[in-house]
């Protein structure tokens, strides 16, 4: 193997930190909202059941109203957090790699060189289908888990991103 070991000027390296990230499409925000509301509804409905049972005294029932109120409060909080988290999500492509950032408090930025991608997948859930969205997943060699997952891309966007990454990856087949 021809082995070289020139000095690399650390300041001259392309800096990943200077990336301008693209936001995900607004449809994804609507999808997050729809999903949160659906989950909230499923959790909230059973909490009204005590109100329908007339055998429970009125005073107790009045106190039991606290349950749906609390649940709704937490639901509103989590929904708000999910909406804010949406603003922090972003992706970008460079000449040789793809970047994705996610997380509200735990902000994780992942960089994946195209050349290390072995395999890519585009999936679409039932709710995503309604909004015309897809999830793009990239896999590398070794582990069995997903290496990079971008949820909430427009379907044709996801498809073209996948194609362009695979086209630039020498090793993916």
């Amino acid at each position: 193997m021809a082995f070289t070991n020139q000095q690399v000027d650390a300041d001259a390296l392309p800096r990943a930190a200077e990336l301008q990230l693209h936001r995900l499409p607004p449809e994804h925000r609507r999808e997050i909202l729809a999903q949160s509301l659906m989950v909230l509804a499923i959790v909230l409905i059973p909490t009204f059941i005590p109100q329908l049972i007339t055998k429970i005294p009125g005073s107790v029932r009045a106190v039991l109203w606290l349950i749906p109120i609390t649940v709704a409060g937490f639901g509103a909080l989590f929904t708000a957090l999910a909406m804010i988290r949406f603003r922090y999500k972003g992706y970008a492509m460079r000449e040789h790699d793809i970047a994705f950032r996610t997380g509200l408090f735990w902000r994780k930025t992942t960089l994946l060189p195209f050349d290390r991608v072995q395999h890519a997948e585009v999936t679409q859930g039932p709710l995503q289908r309604r909004f015309g969205l897809s999830t793009l997943k990239f896999f590398t060699a070794g582990g069995s888990s997903v290496d990079l997952k971008i949820e909430g891309l427009l379907s044709d966007q996801a498809e073209s991103l996948r194609e362009s990454v695979l086209a630039r990856s020498v090793h993916a087949r």
Binding site: L111, L112, A141, G142
Partner: peptide, 8 residues
């Protein structure tokens, strides 16, 4: 193969 940087 992949680099993650995490910040809070």
């Amino acid at each position: 193969q992949r680099v993650d940087v995490v910040q809070t």
